[in-house]
Amino acid sequence: MLEIENLHASVEGSEILRGISLRIEAGEVHAIMGPNGSGKSTLAQVLAGNPTYRVSGQVRFQGRDLLAMAAEARAVAGIFLAFQYPVEIPGVGNLYFLRTALNAVRRQRGQEELDAMDFLALAKERMQLVEMDPELMNRALNEGFSGGEKKRNEIFQMAVLQPSLAILDETDSGLDIDALRSVAAGVNALRSADRALLLITHYQRLLDYIVPDYIHVMANGRIVQSGDKALAVELEQHGYAHFDAAPAPGQRP
């Protein structure tokens, strides 16, 4: 589904991704772990098409050249990023926004748009999936939401938009244990054979609830180790220190 080859990304002249290669097949759940500043969130932003970054390398998504596609085209193709810091937009109603987004995607896919009634029925059903307070639906998008409410709202959007590849950037941060459990339940409900998940997290905690097939460790803009879920336990015990200590080959001291 997703093939990343030698992906580089820089912002304002400083290189953050230094050659990432990764393959994700449909139905798989991958987790990327690593210390702060290792480039995890940049990878998520670059895959979703944030134009702030200068990128090079190759990324193919369902056979298409992803890097040549605008952010909205990637959304239409089925990529979804749950933001680490969802943006607050005063003046735009939460539900109005989501209906606009869903219909923008449907229109660009050549599907019929949903009317207000059909959309509301869909939204109500998906809201229950993440145990979202319906009161939040009538408020402005993320405005005044707590950290946990914002994260829930991201997963709710994902449940409505039904992406093929969902990238969850630090979705666990800022969640208490109950919120983490219900958000994870929402994510797990969306797992399927034709959908892939890429989880980005600093802590192993999330992986107790959303169990990955593969784990990759990022440091200094590269994937330095890959393994199965046992790797998370190892990281929890030893930390990231030894990845940070070893400079990447070819890097000047």
Binding site: G49, E72, A75, I89, G91, A101, L102, A104, Q157
Partner: peptide, 23 residues
Amino acid sequence: QAIFYLRSRGLTEPAARALLTHA
């Protein structure tokens, strides 16, 4: 960042700008 957020949800850039301006 707000424009990118909206585009990542499928809104075109002009649609994202229009939505934020209306807001």
